[in-house]
């Protein structure tokens, strides 16, 4: 049965910037990011934690923002796709994905990019098998994954070459 929604205030850091808002307890983190903070780069693909489109970094760890409530992120530090490079100034990782023609429709892209950010921080020189294993929590329907895997490989090389950012 429906009950009156209760709300809480949430304070968090997103891409290094302090943000806050009043949110219903039941609101998912991805809806809070997209609707309340207007950070629409993070996408909603399945709302049950399988597709990975909504992947963001929570205190550095990749998480599904569709499986968390906004209130659970209170006091935490988040990184989203908007915190990387801009169209005029792509990060080396984004540049590598562009050069590998990594993506097509772009809907799954933010999730893959954030998953890759976390992967390369933890393992700067992953093998192809490690890359494919790591990306297996993200679904892409356009590419067959090969161009994404190539993008991760060249991003790793670019980061090793000191273009870390």
């Amino acid at each position: 049965m429906t009950t009156t929604p209760t709300t809480q205030s949430v304070q968090l850091t997103v891409n290094g910037v302090a943000r806050s808002g009043e949110t219903e307890n039941r609101k998912t983190l991805v809806d809070f990011l997209r609707d309340d903070l207007e950070l629409t780069g993070t996408h909603v693909g399945c709302e049950h934690g399988v597709c990975g489109a909504c992947t963001i970094l929570l205190d550095g760890e990749p998480v599904r923002s569709c499986l968390m409530l906004a209130v659970q992120a209170n006091g935490r530090s988040l990184e989203t796709i908007e915190g990387l490079g801009s169209p005029d100034d792509l990060s080396p990782l984004q540049q590598a994905f562009r050069e590998s023609h990594g993506f097509q429709c772009g809907f799954c892209t933010p999730g893959f990019v954030m998953t890759t950010v976390a992967l390369l921080r933890e393992n700067p020189d992953p093998s192809e098998a490690e890359i494919r294993h790591c990306l297996s929590g993200n679904l892409c329907r356009c590419t067959g994954y090969q161009s994404i895997v190539e993008g991760v490989k060249s991003a790793a090389l670019a980061l090793q070459a000191g273009e870390n950012r």
């Binding site: 997209r34 780069g41 562009r98 772009g106």
Partner: peptide
């Protein structure tokens, strides 16, 4: 397309 897609600046309908 990649300049906007890779930076979260795409404009999909839910945006």
């Amino acid at each position: 397309e990649d300049l906007r897609i890779l930076t979260g600046r795409g404009r999909y309908v839910d945006d």
